[in-house]
Design a binder for these strands. Structure first.
Lengths: 243, 243
DNA sequence: CTCCTTCTCCGTACCACATACACTGTATTC
DNA sequence: GAATACAGTGTATGTGGTACGGAGAAGGAG
């Protein structure tokens, strides 16, 4: 059986402690915390091995005793930046998944830099795997197969990512797509698109569908799509119950 | 009114032609094509300004006459790499959106590097905007508002991304998450997770829900989630029709 | 108590890559 | 045919990740 990747081992507290030599001056936690603080403040671009090290008062190369590469650091950051998933309490599966997806979206939206890293990194840390687990657990007893539950979880998670991406793009934080967030973007589209080639889009632009305020996106819009998904799932559960 | 970003202008053939001086030796198309060829062959990491230029037989700096930065190049690549969206023909909105989402997923899966770029880049090119338009157009006449249609499109698109990401991760192309694709990943999870802290996940692992073959993922699994979404949308449309 | 092992951290490079700047030559306009 | 704007090149610079070897700290062995 092959060894766990070192960062993964350290994320789970499975590092083998050594007896000889100086004690370690840092923890992976301290490092990820410092890196996260920088990412929150300056965005992902501000996260350099040197800047993280500087934040901790150690040399750049000291970090390589804890992570084998910058990618490792990013992976660890994702897990450390995620909050704990919500408690199930006595919620129905539907109530729980609704809360789960909303909480998922909320923390992604509060840390836009996660959107550039998390979607490409499969969950490997204790916390992100707990998110996966809680969703699967909530679906236990609905009669769905495990594979279906996994699939549903992936879909809900994708929805959370999409909603967070949208919300972030609206406030123009992530990406200066055309100047200043949404307004610049719609202005640009209006200039580019003509009714012949892009009838649906033109109509949408004219009706101001893109001009919605961020706070609308942040709730009613989100709930709308989520309901779509949950209705679909509920229909499936019902089918399974009777079949 | 502010000027269009230069790459965007060039993507739409809106560049102002100059009269004096030597003729241009290249097109943005040629450049993106060369870059795409490299990305297909070596992945996104192989795309360097120097490698793209070398592929065209020009100097690195020549490219900066066509794009203002590497990011610009990536943006242009996304649009050039996308195929045309499917034709509506006489499909119902549901039939069309189903085909649309599937085609969307297919081209993303065939070019894994798109997954690292496209989700973060709002559509600005003629082709990607055509994708957006076709979905909106298909939803015209269902009684949904334009804002709802936009939202639905975003959700379907996110689903395509998620499915493509999953499919790519399975075949282990994108990311060596634990050694060799899915098997390494499940093996790792099995070692990390215990039934106390992760009941649902443990059950899923034991039942082999993660061990599914890629080709299953590539169809039945995808259709499953898509049906979920479309059912939800259909329910909404029905509600609007009667209300 | 002393030496030796083993480990942590550091300083110093090195290399890859994006991009600024000044230059050369060419095609157009007067 | 001169003036001019402009395409493409060469060189240089800066930034950032990471390899390598050394120095000193902690523990174990004699």
């Amino acid at each position: 059986m092959r060894d766990l990747p070192t960062v993964v081992a350290r994320m789970w507290g499975r590092e083998l402690v050594s007896r000889r030599g100086p004690r370690r001056g840092l923890t992976l936690q301290q490092i990820t915390d410092a890196a996260i603080a920088i990412a929150d403040a300056e965005g992902l671009a501000g996260v350099r091995m040197s800047s993280v090290a500087a934040g901790l008062g150690v040399s750049t190369m000291a970090l390589y005793g804890y992570v084998t590469s910058k990618d490792d650091l990013l992976t660890a950051m994702v897990d450390a930046a995620a909050p704990e998933p919500p408690e199930q309490g006595d919620l129905s599966w539907r109530g729980y998944l609704s809360a789960w997806t909303r909480a998922n979206r909320d923390f992604l939206a509060s840390r836009p830099w996660l959107l550039q890293v998390a979607p490409l990194t499969p969950p490997v840390g204790p916390c992100t795997l707990r998110w996966l687990d809680r969703s699967l657990t909530a679906l236990t007893g609905t009669g769905l197969t495990a594979a279906e539950a996994v699939n549903i979880t992936a879909t809900l998670s994708a929805y959370a990512v999409s909603a967070a991406t949208l919300a972030t793009a609206m406030s123009g934080t992530v990406d200066e797509a055309g100047g200043e967030g949404l307004d610049g973007y719609t202005a640009m589209l209006t200039r580019l698109v003509d009714a012949d080639g892009y009838p649906g889009l033109t109509a949408a632009l004219e009706s101001g569908a893109f001009g919605v305020a961020p706070e609308w996106v942040e709730d009613a819009d989100f709930a709308f799509g989520l309901t779509l998904l949950l209705d679909g799932i509920e229909a499936l559960v019902a089918r399974r119950k009777e079949g």
